[in-house]
Nucleic acid binder design. Structure first.
Lengths: 334, 334
DNA sequence: GCTATCCGAGAAAGCGCTTTCTCGATTCCA
DNA sequence: TGGAATCGAGAAAGCGCTTTCTCGGATAGC
């Protein structure tokens, strides 16, 4: 029986096969050229000892870990989960694994978190909507190879996959406008979040060029609870339509509103943003701006992979959210 | 300026501070006792060179990576995402990171996947409902330290955090029975999945001891699409209530049923299982058996942490799902 | 049959850090 | 003042693998 003492090392295998560790290494990695009998002996020895190369030692010698870090502001958010799921599956095809980290606990040391987790991997996919451009730029150097998600990379040479939040929210506002809504509310996301800022910009521009529309802002947040908490304010605002920061907020809001006796969409129309998997199952189904999260994960890996092999990554893309009209929006009440 | 050539190593710092690498190591790890001036010099040198210890090299020398693997059958399932989110946050408090892996692509080599990913980490949290007891037992040895999630560990000494699926589904069936339902359908999960088997057992036992109840089984799966696909069969079954394998299936089913003009719960009552975050927002809100996923993550880490430090992990627990009655169930139609 | 080539496989030097020994220099006590 | 006890810090041996060099032996060529 195999002795349970300690995992076999390459030296053990080498000894048993009466060859050098170098040869074992070569055999294990398919780089062996020479007497087939020798290779055979090595394989037998490896099998007999139940030898498994130490990934750690390999990584150190090779200078690469075959792992990438994935940092997001909130792992509990379905939008990021969708990206993670897709990234993880895609990277797995190339033998890479994903190390996750959630910066929700303390946004302020997101840079440290990112740096720490980056050092354990070969590269990092970062989603840091709350980080300032300056912070990000300062950090980018030590993070490379780096792929940015959900934001652009001003002054940074890293690939970025962004979402045209302004365009997305504008489509939603436009949609509401066409339904006759004139008084709208925008339920703001986390302040100092770039993705929120972009939505605000889009909305401001829309309001500026559209006669008779008034969009007021109410602070909320990024989670369902934040939406729910804003329900009372929304009702008293007398607006006929609400653009929520994202689907989570919209879902919470709808729930809160319904609890107050407000009918959606009869009394108030509500829109989300993201099109998380459940947006179509809410009651009523949520009108939203659809973001291709799975595609984001796939593309992120494509860029990452190129970067890792020192090839030129494909150009940056800014995804255009697709207007997904469902039941939570309807004509403005008379 | 710092030269951009190559990351500084401990040797570089040692050279600059005119001390040995050993001393640098000690200073960096707070194990230094001796001339404060020396420590100061080291710190200055480290700072000047922007020195960051190589996590990889440390891991190799220390024999530990401060990472744990998390393997699930489907990373896209909100139930697992909830566990991951919680596990990741909890482990982070002890300086551990989580490496994820999704075995959805090929269930058959889940053992290989688990082993591979385990070797990159100090331990593994495994959720493998489709693996046979025998496979699992064979695998357990090389996976240690191992914490099992969502299933018990027959003949294995690893901690396990399981869910009493049988009890949970029984509560749901009981609830339906009390509402007057007599003809029910159970929408089965993945065949050969242990968690499905337990539900079936619970249901069989319930049916056996309950007069006049008839529970037929219809194969479905574990995702929303599977539930949706089963809608037609469910309707033609003439059952007045459906127990879905999980919330995802229930949500898909409800959607499919509504599309066929079936009213929930008026015509047919539907229950889920898990109580994923969105269960309460579906239309109608889903009656389900609530599983404490966040708690699962926390407890998994507690066990893991104990195992890693060679302490005795707390005893296994089998969580009792809580009956969460919402709107998708109602009295059986006359 | 003898030298020029080639080829198979080993020796050894890393990869970057930790840690046990070890040793020279102080300090302390008699 | 001498010897023991103490203390600060370095030397060096790993951790387990990869890879460049190197070299002895076999093959080829004349």
């Amino acid at each position: 029986m195999a002795r349970r003492s300690r995992a076999a090392t390459i030296a053990d295998v080498a000894a048993r096969a009466a060859v050098s560790p170098a040869t074992v290494s070569r055999v294990m990695n398919g780089r062996f050229v020479g007497e087939p009998a020798v290779a055979e002996r090595v394989r037998d020895a490896a099998q007999a000892l139940d030898y498994r190369p130490s990934h750690l030692a390999r990584s150190l010698a090779l200078g690469q870990t075959s792992a990438v870090a994935f940092v997001v502001p909130d792992l509990a958010n379905p939008a990021f989960q969708a990206v993670l799921s897709s990234l993880s599956k895609t990277a797995a095809h190339d033998g890479y694994r994903v190390l996750v980290a959630d910066s929700a606990e303390s946004p302020s040391d997101e840079p440290l978190l990112a740096a720490e987790v980056r050092r354990r991997c070969d590269a990092i996919v970062l989603c840091a909507p709350r980080m300032s451009d300056a912070e990000l730029a300062a950090l980018a150097g030590e993070l490379q190879p780096l792929v940015l998600i959900n934001r652009e990379a001003p002054g940074i040479s890293s690939p970025s996959l962004s979402i045209d939040y302004a365009a997305g929210i504008t489509k939603l506002a436009q949609h509401l406008h066409e339904l006759g809504h004139r008084r709208m509310v925008y339920l703001e996301g986390p302040e100092s979040s770039a993705s929120n800022a972009h939505r605000v910009e889009g909305l401001d521009a829309f309001a500026a060029r559209t006669k008779g529309v008034r969009i007021t802002r109410i602070p909320a947040g990024a989670g369902a609870e934040d939406g729910r908490a804003a329900a009372a304010k929304v009702r008293s605002s007398k607006a006929t339509a609400v653009l929520a920061y994202n689907d989570l907020v919209a879902i919470g809001l709808i729930d809160g509103l319904q609890e107050l006796g407000v009918r959606i969409p009869d009394d108030i129309s509500v829109t989300g943003f993201d099109d998380i998997p459940f947006a179509r199952y809410t009651s009523p189904a949520l009108t939203t701006a659809s973001v291709p999260h799975a595609e984001l994960g796939v593309q992120a890996w494509r860029r990452m992979n190129a970067l890792i092999r020192h090839e030129d990554p494909e150009h940056d893309v800014q995804f255009q959210p697709r207007l997904e009209i469902r039941r939570s929006t309807a004509a403005a009440p008379a």
